[in-house]
Design a protein around this nucleic acid. Structure first.
Lengths: 197, 197
DNA sequence: TTGCGATCGAACCGATCGGTACGAACTCGG
DNA sequence: CCGAGTTCGTACCGATCGGTTCGATCGCAA
């Protein structure tokens, strides 16, 4: 029981603990694959508490997806930064990290993409688009630091590879998608640099 | 009314007309976004007829997805074949065709991917995996005809670009995903050829 | 003409859905 | 010690879900 009976020390703590606990459930079962009743029961929280904090189920979904997007984005950025100064190494590290994710048993594809496929409406589509915006920014920055002739284009191409790899890992072959994407990404990076360097 | 009151000339015709009519509805609204009742009403068909032909809703979904996969697969293959003999031209034609698809107002991503994101279970996942198998075969064949040093690897990389482009077009930017994917694909193809040719 | 099979339309079923209401239990600040 | 605020558990609501059943209607083959 994450929350005792009476008034909690901090209502804000309750809210974020609900988000944390609901995230894997909504990811595994799908946004519509689990009802509010079961959700609350698994969370150890009453419906009233959930509805006071989030208004309705969409409010919870929105909060969960935003938190997830933030977490995943910083996770990727951290993995890139940890690979050192060389943008080429950073790019390789991103795909290595992705491949490790794909091989986790709990991997079921990108939560944002799954959500957008289920709820083709706001706020989910907006959160997903923002998520991809941020990822594009990160990849474009790597392309720019690598000295690509057209970093905007290369960034978008790298984005295709990242998201394509995640999708293929989810629906086709999780053992090699990241590796193949890495090879392709490095080849595109090398080809996009002006002669020399 | 696609089917009059009494016995139809051909029950098989009824079945395929149901599939054809249900396909866009399930695509637009999502597998769980439209109920059997509304589905039947829009199809101009009674529940009894639908359930006799398909057993249950999953049976209809399965039939719709299989038909869709067949249709899309042959559509891509036809576009490639129409581009002439040069595998490089064929590859470019595939992405041009995809880009045109993305720009259609009714475009909502790949039906198979959307379905798999919603129903992470058989038979949907199996149909989606088979769909990707066939697409991989087509792309690998192009890679092989182009003289790639490792056509299996290049085929998988091209698959990443195709599916990544469709996903990005659906959730982020439908105006340029196909074009960027085409440029990346051609660059990978050129880089994968042994020196010369 | 008779009978079989396909179809319609509507009623009906139990289950589940998202969401609300309420009394009781509990904590904490004043 | 008391009242405000939080939470629980449960019951409840109307709507919708997938699926079944049934009488009536109609086409077609024998």
């Amino acid at each position: 029981m994450p929350v005792p009976k009476g008034s909690t020390i901090d209502p804000e703590r309750t809210r974020s603990s609900i988000i944390d606990a609901a995230t894997p459930l909504l990811y595994e079962r799908g946004l519509d694959g689990i009802g509010v009743a079961e959700l609350c029961s698994r969370l150890g929280v009453s419906k009233e508490t959930l509805y006071r904090h989030f208004g309705n189920k969409d409010g919870l979904v929105e909060a969960v997806l935003k938190a997830r997007s933030d977490r995943v984005t910083s996770w990727i950025a951290t993995a890139a930064a940890a690979a050192g100064e060389d943008p080429r190494d950073q790019l390789a590290a991103v795909f290595d990290e992705l491949q490790q994710w794909y091989e986790e048993p709990s991997f079921r594809g990108c939560a944002m993409h799954n959500a957008a496929a289920q709820h083709q409406a706001q706020p989910v589509t907006g959160i997903t688009a923002r998520h991809l915006d941020r990822r594009l920014d990160l990849l474009t920055a790597i392309a720019r630091r690598a000295g690509a002739a057209d970093p905007e284009t290369l960034g978008r191409q790298l984005l295709l590879l990242v998201e394509g790899a995640t999708l293929i890992a989810a629906h086709h072959d999780r053992t090699s998608a990241g590796t193949h994407a890495k090879q392709a990404a490095l080849a595109l990076l090398d080809a996009a640099r002006p002669a020399g360097a």
